[in-house]
Amino acid sequence: MLVIYTTLFLALIISLITDMKSRRILNIITFPVILIGIGFYSITQGWDGFFFSSFGFLTGIGTLLIPFILGGMGAGDVKLMGAIGAMMGSAFTLKAFFIIALLGGVISLILILRKKGFFNVMKLLYLMPLLLSGNPGLLNLNYQDKSKIVFPYGVPIVLGTLITMVWGVV
């Protein structure tokens, strides 16, 4: 198992660095990790290991597939989750995804508060039921700044995975 933990740890650190520097998670990192995971489990545990790793891979891909299709994240993030699944299996990947989603939400909220300001965000949250009522004419909100708030999602993926590895959260 030392091979699995070491390989995954190195892949996570490299992915964190490349995502923060260039906003890319490299295929040259994720693809070999996926193959190492599936190969290791297949060799050491036979068909059970193959299915363990393959289902983990599919679980990892599945967690971020819809956000990717909707344009909310890049393919590298999806492949990194697949690599995590191939190395650690489905159960671990789902636990890690819960922590990853929480971290991603907290980071997003902090970035929104920094950009829009606390009171503007609170005003929007307070008025959200009014917006959802279907009568937007009641509000005169200024939406001139349509720029997106984006950040490298590899950060919460790596942090959430490491937290799950260390503490076995959930």
Results as ranks from 00 to 15, higher is better:
Gly37Ala: 09
Ile149Glu: 00
Ser22Gly: 00
Val158Lys: 01
Ser90Glu: 13
Leu130Ala: 02
Ser133Leu: 04
Leu58Cys: 14
Ala86Asn: 10
Ser22Pro: 00
Thr7Met: 02
Thr161Cys: 04
Gly117Phe: 06
Phe151Thr: 05
Gly82Cys: 12
Met81Asn: 07
Gly137Met: 02
Lys79Asn: 10
Leu102Phe: 12
Gly39Cys: 06
Lys21Leu: 13
Gly168Thr: 11
Leu70Cys: 08
Lys116Arg: 14
Met165His: 03
Val33Thr: 15
Leu130Ile: 13
Phe118Tyr: 11
Gly104Ala: 14
Ala83Gly: 13
Ala83Arg: 10
Val150Trp: 01
Gly76His: 09
Thr164Pro: 05
Gly71Pro: 13
Tyr41Phe: 14
Phe55Asp: 11
Met88Phe: 12
Ile17Ser: 02
Phe151Gly: 04
Gly74Leu: 06
Ile28Ala: 10
Phe97Pro: 04
Leu103Thr: 09
Leu10Arg: 02
Ser22Arg: 13
Pro67Ala: 09
Gly89His: 11
Thr63Arg: 03
Ser147Thr: 15
Ile66Cys: 07
Gln144Thr: 13
Phe50Trp: 12
Trp47Ala: 10
Leu139Phe: 01
Lys115Arg: 14
Ile66Ser: 08
Gly71Arg: 13
Ile61Lys: 08
Val33Ala: 07
Leu113Ile: 15
Val121Glu: 00
Phe9Trp: 04
Ser42Phe: 13
Leu10Asn: 02
Tyr153Gln: 02
Met1His: 12
Met87Leu: 15
Leu64Met: 15
Ile163Leu: 14
Val3Met: 08
Val78His: 08
Phe92Asn: 08
Phe55Ser: 13
Ile36Ala: 06
Gly46Asp: 07
Met165Glu: 05
Val150Asn: 09
Ser90Asn: 12
Thr63Phe: 05
Met87Tyr: 10
Thr7Cys: 08
Leu141Ala: 00
Ile14Tyr: 11
Pro156Ala: 01
Ile4Val: 15
Thr161Ile: 04
Tyr5Asn: 15
Leu70Gln: 15
Ile14Val: 14
Gly134Phe: 02
Pro136Ser: 01
Gly56Trp: 07
Leu139Val: 06
Ala101Ser: 14
Ile110Asn: 00
Gly76Tyr: 07
Gly76Val: 11
Pro129Ala: 00
Gly56Met: 08
Pro136Arg: 07
Ala83Ile: 12
Ile13Lys: 05
Gly168Gln: 11
Gly74Asp: 06
Phe55Asn: 14
Val33Cys: 05
Thr18Cys: 03
Ile99Asn: 08
Ser133Val: 03
Lys79Thr: 13
Ser15Glu: 02
Gly105Val: 11
Phe118Met: 10
Gly49Ala: 10
Gly104Trp: 05
Ser42Arg: 06
Gly49Gln: 11
Asp77Cys: 12
Gly85Ile: 09
Ile110Gln: 00
Met165Ala: 03
Gly74Ala: 08
Gly62His: 07
Met20Cys: 12
Ala75Phe: 14
Lys116Asp: 06
Arg114Tyr: 06
Phe52Cys: 08
Gly72Met: 12
Phe118Cys: 03
Pro156Trp: 02
Leu2Asp: 13
Asn27Arg: 07
